[in-house]
Amino acid sequence: MDEKLPLTKTYLFIIDVTLQHPRVELIDGSGRIAGGMDVELNVRVNENPEPLGGSIDISGGVSYMADEGKFFLTDPVVENFSVQGLAESIKPKVNKAIEKALSEYFSKNPIYTLKKTDLKQAAAYAVLKNVSVEGKDLVVVLGI
């Protein structure tokens, strides 16, 4: 993920959202992965907008595409976000823009791709069939 960030997109014609510095952990008992990113918002409501910095915490499921050796975050949900100086009146629009940015990003960008040029990862690619989160463990199903 870190290789594909920062990512900047414009939403609702006035909000530029930049996502960067990802962090990831497994959530005990949820079947989901938790993660966070730093967020920079540039809301164009006047001539000289200043970027607003903050952070976002998200969660999502994990899926594995065996034919491509790629791991994806599924069903991302914004658990918490805070942005310094963001007016309460526009938080719902910003939250919507962030969720859209996350959905678009994670639908196209894997959280990890096995490297076929690495001997150990190539071996995993050959036998790895499925991945899920159980407790604080990543459960891996292997098969031939």
Rank of each mutant, 00 (worst) to 15 (best):
L5S: 10
L5C: 07
L5N: 09
P6F: 11
T8N: 03
T8Q: 09
K9Y: 06
K9V: 07
T10L: 06
T10R: 14
Y11W: 13
Y11R: 09
Y11T: 02
Y11D: 01
Y11V: 00
L12F: 15
F13L: 07
I14L: 10
I14W: 09
I15F: 05
I15G: 00
I15S: 02
D16Q: 10
V17S: 01
V17Q: 02
V17C: 01
T18L: 00
T18R: 06
L19D: 03
Q20H: 13
Q20S: 12
Q20M: 08
H21C: 00
P22H: 14
R23T: 14
R23H: 14
R23L: 03
V24E: 14
V24I: 15
E25Q: 12
E25A: 06
L26G: 04
I27M: 13
D28L: 06
D28Y: 14
D28P: 05
S30D: 07
S30Y: 12
G31W: 13
G31N: 06
G31M: 05
R32Q: 12
R32F: 07
I33H: 02
A34N: 11
G35T: 14
G35C: 10
G35K: 05
G36H: 05
G36P: 06
M37E: 03
M37T: 07
M37F: 15
V39P: 02
V39S: 01
V39M: 00
V39D: 02
E40P: 00
E40C: 00
E40V: 12
L41I: 07
N42A: 01
R44P: 00
R44H: 15
R44C: 01
V45Q: 09
N46R: 13
N46D: 09
N46F: 15
E47A: 08
E47H: 08
N48F: 14
E50Q: 15
P51W: 10
P51T: 08
P51H: 09
L52I: 09
L52T: 08
L52N: 04
G53K: 13
G53N: 12
G54W: 10
G54A: 04
G54M: 05
